[in-house]
Design a protein around this nucleic acid. Structure first.
Lengths: 342, 342
DNA sequence: CCGTTTTATGTACGCGCGTACATTTTCTCA
DNA sequence: TGAGAAAATGTACGCGCGTACATAAAACGG
């Protein structure tokens, strides 16, 4: 390669990296030679020399449980991350949270140079998880969380306005005339569950309604957990006239459960889900939902992390906290009359 | 590290890689030292030294079009690949097919040692794509295709019995008494589209029915393309009594389109989708579909590739072609009476 | 107890780049 | 035209492992 262009390896390196002054003729000779030989520098050697992997890691909850979340959530975020990473010339390393040893795992991803930055999805409050994240921060690593907030830790986070989204959803139900609104939430270990709960309570309170403890349910974001709640809701059907679910999958599970218990589709309680996943408009009636800009959240997470990896980023605040707005998507399931009565 | 254990770097390396004879006491000393210092070898240096990246690459269609396929398809396959990769100690590098330059891209992934093996998803017949794959084969790379077959190329492939699945689905419709079965297929560039078409035709033929050209439609696997076909189907509603769709998303799009055109849900034509994605049981009526074991296909692809990377795999056939069975999942949408009449 | 294996460990080098520094070539302007 | 500065290129070394080969230590056999 160097020989063919009749220059030293160093010059080749300079041309390929666009660094230092190069005579135009030389540059061309090198490029021609590279094309002729179909030469491409070994990413491995290059990474080794610069001790940077060129990868951005994405942590996913450990496999069997991926489906606890909607795949929509992950697909969108991953697409967003992937889209931005590519613009920065980074590749995307998909990593699954190990069942044990999380503490070392995160840290070693950096130490072994598997990744230059890390995005953690599906993180939830847990002593070990927290400890592992703190360690990353101590070590000055570039990482960020999506859709999860740790209070007072100063982690970088990209989140959405879950409290507000929840407030708006419940308010909408109330305005539609619903008064007894059941709430099926996700586990409290997720900050967004707690925020949605707060929004739910605030909306009830602002409209002079009381929280009815017996109408509060907890699922695990999976469809089945929504389905499982159906019987409890069914038993209280005299006192429940609407349901707010913490994500679409649970809403749909609940919907199915109620249908299976014999409720005709046009006599279902009012329903609103969360996430505005693609399935929201596939149900009958179509499901109102709170839209969360997952794709964009993925993009922003990647963009902020990667731009801080650039040499030119000196002086840039090394820590960021972004909160994107949610949006209430009103469809048939939450409307009192109209299409639901078809 | 080496100092703390009072051994040479070489011995450390041997202990950590479990190679060569080591005195038990020495091993322990090294391990203790490693724990104490929280030492982990640099993956980068190690990979460089062995010139293996430790990554298995997965090519996805370029981003904006990911949603052309159901995300279900990708989620399942990726999960399968990820699950198996982890067992082999490989990491999963997510790669997006570039719009240009595919030809060099694939090849250079290996040349630059970004990946040790490659799985291509969403591949479709195309001169450049084919050329790029041929080059990989020439270069002796370890790669495989999922859900796509190239005739006579001898590529490694993990596929499903699309023809048979299709045949069974259409046969089922016929047995339910449907006689005029429209077919909305995916683009012909995908081998599985061609196979499904063959199955459709064979089923009609075997039951003495004719193919009605005006009932054949082509979508792009997206929901919207199914929706777009609705009006054509609607116009022929007198001659159509069932629809077989090449995937669930199109089936559901079509379903929605017909609903929007005013057809009550219990007077829809019989319908069967393909893939058996999670949304199939969320519709009203629930959608019959042909189940494809995507997760397992991902597992098998990874397993076969990675096991061939091991030193012990000498003599193993370097090329494999696997075809997994599909399964007809009968739900409400294809049944003539019963639950559909609720 | 010594020679001979066998086992255990150390030494030295290469993997293929990037880059600081040394050197050569070209340019500038007196 | 020649000296000094600027531009262009070459030289040499390190990044942190794995591993072939050299060497030392232990085991064995007579």
């Amino acid at each position: 390669m160097a020989d063919l262009a009749k220059v030293s390896e160093a010059t080749v390196s300079r041309v390929l990296n666009n660094v230092g002054p190069i005579k135009e003729e030389t540059r061309q000779r090198v490029i021609d030679a590279a094309n002729e030989l179909n030469y491409a520098p070994s990413a491995l050697a290059r990474n080794f020399a610069t001790s940077k992997s060129g990868n951005i890691g994405v942590i996913l909850p450990y496999l069997p449980k991926v489906n606890m979340f909607s795949t929509y959530f992950f697909s969108e975020i991953l697409s967003g991350i992937g889209s931005m990473s590519r613009e920065f010339g980074y590749d995307l390393l998909l990593l699954f949270r190990p069942m044990d040893d999380v503490l070392n795992y995160y840290s070693q991803l950096f130490h072994t140079h598997k990744v230059d930055a890390l995005i953690v999805l599906g993180s939830k409050e847990d002593p070990i998880e927290l400890e592992a994240l703190r360690r990353l921060k101590e070590e000055g690593r570039h990482f960020c969380l999506i859709n999860q907030h740790y209070d007072g830790e100063g982690f970088s986070e990209v989140d959405a306005t879950h409290e507000k989204g929840s407030y708006e959803a419940v308010t909408h139900l109330i305005q539609q005339g619903y008064k007894e609104i059941a709430f099926i939430n996700g586990p409290d270990e997720y900050s967004n569950s707690r925020e949605r709960s707060a929004g739910y309570r605030r909306a009830l309170h602002d409209h002079g309604l009381e929280v009815n403890q017996s109408l509060l349910f907890t699922g695990n974001f999976g469809r089945k957990s929504g389905y499982a709640v159906a019987s409890s809701v069914f038993a209280r059907l005299n006192e429940v006239d609407a349901i707010f679910a913490s994500n679409d999958r649970m809403a749909i599970g609940l919907h199915q459960g109620l249908r299976d218990l014999g409720i005709p589709w046009n006599q279902l309680p009012g329903m609103i889900g969360f996430d505005d996943s693609d399935i929201a408009e596939l149900t009958t009636p179509t499901l109102s939902s709170v839209k969360v800009p997952f794709f964009q959240m993925g993009e922003l997470a990647a963009e902020n992390l990667l731009s801080r990896l650039r040499p030119s980023s000196l002086g840039m605040q090394d820590h960021f906290r972004i909160q994107l707005p949610t949006e209430l998507m009103i469809r048939e399931s939450s409307l009192r009359t109209d299409s639901k009565e078809e």
